[in-house]
Write a protein that binds this DNA or RNA. Structure first.
Length: 486
RNA sequence: GUCUCCUUCGUCUAGUGGUUAGGACACCGGGUUUUCAUCCCGGCAACAGGGGUUCGACUCCCCUAGGAGAUGCCA
């Protein structure tokens, strides 16, 4: 059997972690099985459709390196891949159900339905009361004459049960009477609901396996019923556990960033995100957790999936990101940092600028200190701009020392810095050590006032490298400014 | 309320009848280091509860509890 899977987002919002993980698992499953991965756009909700959301789908997966074999932008033998372009098929499908007496037109108003729903919630009764199920042709004609546009509902049997084998969960059974009574499959605007469209399309697109979030589990029996009504063979289902926030509820804004663009803006690398997300509900073994996408494409298997929901751990993602940043080549990291530095106004456009040269040389100094690319401006600004924020004079004074001592230290260090061109790094450090001995103190106490004078902060990249990048002239000016403060 | 699914350290997980229940993140100590970070070493910490089945249960079955999802002319 040829494996064909799909990711079927609806363009109603930005791609979020949960959706992307579903897409990733489908993609990996397809690759591992030598099958095809299809993108289908479920744009059947006219109200919530957004062009921006559609573009976000393309941008997100391009960034992540996840490509589909068939889709609206690539074409394929099973198109069109926009559901809004497949309406005729749904209408045809609905007609066969109507003709077979397996579905019926319902003329109830949205208001009546809302009333039913709130009563039902109060009394613990489920959904629609099936009022239109057995309308006569005359009654239907009367409604139509009044100008009421009907919806179409599927007849759910009152007896019996639907069951299916979930690849992860095993046998799932549900009595028909526990299903929503006669759900709507065709809306009054002529668009199908998810239930209908997904069944018709998965069948027509020859989808063999459906990996989707567990929120769909409770409507799967309904989908099975639909397949039976059409006489179609249902695909194999695999319902993926949720990704939740700390409180165990579905991941949402309350918990932090949820959309991929947000993570991207914060300076996560795509490989860190895919690696981490792949481990949410899936694992390879007890000793490995670093995986490149192309390795996952080989190694992914449904058998290693977990049933329990997974809490999204921002800290661990960050740790992954730091690891991947450290693995970058200097040139790549430079390019990755560039947009952050540019928008901070620290780096002019262009490759041959003085600033670009400084940043290139600074990469080794910051690489192992960076967890997020967005931290780059803060770490590098002392090299690219004047120290504008006025650090407090006390910062210059090492612990257990006074201002006079700090001042003496800076004065002593100044001539060494002035001559630094004549030393290599080791010699320069030796000079600082010599000074420390002369002042009967630790090296750290010599370096700290200098560090603050040069970088404006007690934490900074390695000082000697920073001095070199800053240059003798600017370094001396900052030392003088510091001395003046004391 | 009803239905469905789930349950190993705080978190992600390994584990498929016999293990001192392993790893990673986080956290806490210590070491290296010019600060920070990296790196290295060490520590803390879990089988939800109760019944079975079995010579033996984290592993199999049942119940309870807890959590989550569904219950839309949204997907």
């Amino acid at each position: 059997m040829t494996v064909r899977v799909r990711y079927a987002p609806s363009p109603t919002g930005l791609q979020h972690i949960g959706g992307v993980r579903t897409a990733l698992f489908n993609y990996l499953f397809a690759r591992a099985q030598g099958g095809a991965f299809v993108l289908r756009i479920e744009d059947t909700d006219q109200e919530r459709y957004s062009e921006e959301a559609l573009e976000d789908i393309y941008a997100t997966f391009e960034w992540l390196g996840i490509v589909w074999d068939e889709g609206p932008d690539r074409g394929g033998p099973y198109g069109p891949y926009f559901q809004s372009q497949r309406l005729a098929r749904y209408h045809e499908a609905v007609q066969t159900l109507l003709d077979a007496g397996k579905a019926y037109e319902c003329f109830c108003s949205a208001e009546r339905l809302a009333g039913l729903r709130s009563e039902g919630a109060r009394d613990g009764v489920l959904g629609y009361d099936r009022r239109c199920r057995d309308l006569t042709e005359e009654q239907r004609a009367a409604y139509r004459a009044e100008g009421v546009t009907p919806v179409v509902r599927l007849k759910v049997p009152e007896q019996g049960a639907a069951s299916f084998e979930d690849m992860l969960l095993g046998t799932v059974k549900r009595k028909y009477k526990d299903l929503s009574p006669d759900p709507i499959i065709l809306k009054s605007d002529g668009f199908p609901t998810y239930h209908l469209a997904n069944v018709v399309d998965d069948h027509e697109m020859a989808i063999s396996h459906v990996l989707r979030a567990q929120e769909w589990l409770s409507s799967t029996p309904l989908h099975i019923l639909l397949y039976e009504a059409f006489g179609f063979e249902p695909p194999r289902y695999c319902h993926l556990p949720f990704v939740t926030g700390k409180d165990g509820q579905k991941l949402s804004k309350r918990h932090g960033a949820t959309s991929v663009v947000e993570f991207r803006k914060q300076g996560y690398l795509p490989e860190a995100l895919t690696n981490y997300i792949a481990l949410l509900g899936w694992s390879y073994d007890d000793s490995r957790e670093f995986f490149a996408l192309n390795e996952l494409e080989r190694l992914f298997s449904v058998e290693k999936l977990n049933k329990a929901p997974a809490v999204f751990d921002y800290k661990k993602l960050e740790w992954f990101n730091g690891n991947y940043i450290r693995e970058c080549s200097s040139e790549r990291l430079f390019e990755l940092m560039r947009p952050y530095l540019e928008t901070a106004g620290l780096l002019p456009a262009g490759n041959e600028t003085r600033e670009a040269a400084i940043v290139r040389n600074a990469v080794p100094l910051v690489q192992e200190r960076l967890k997020l690319l967005s931290e780059a401006p803060e770490l590098l600004k002392f090299l690219l701009a004047e120290i504008t924020e006025n650090y407090a004079a006390e910062e210059l004074i090492p612990k257990k020392m006074d201002a006079a001592a700090a001042k003496a230290l800076l004065n002593a260090v100044r001539p060494v810095v002035a001559a630094m061109e004549h030393y290599d790094d080791e010699q320069l450090e030796a000079e600082f050590r010599r000074l420390a001995e002369q002042h009967d103190t630790k090296l750290g106490n010599v370096m700290m006032p200098l560090r603050v004078a040069i970088t404006g902060s007690r934490t900074s990249p390695p000082l000697i490298g920073s001095l070199r990048l800053l240059g003798t002239e600017r370094a001396l000016a900052r030392i003088d400014a510091a001395i003046a403060k004391l």
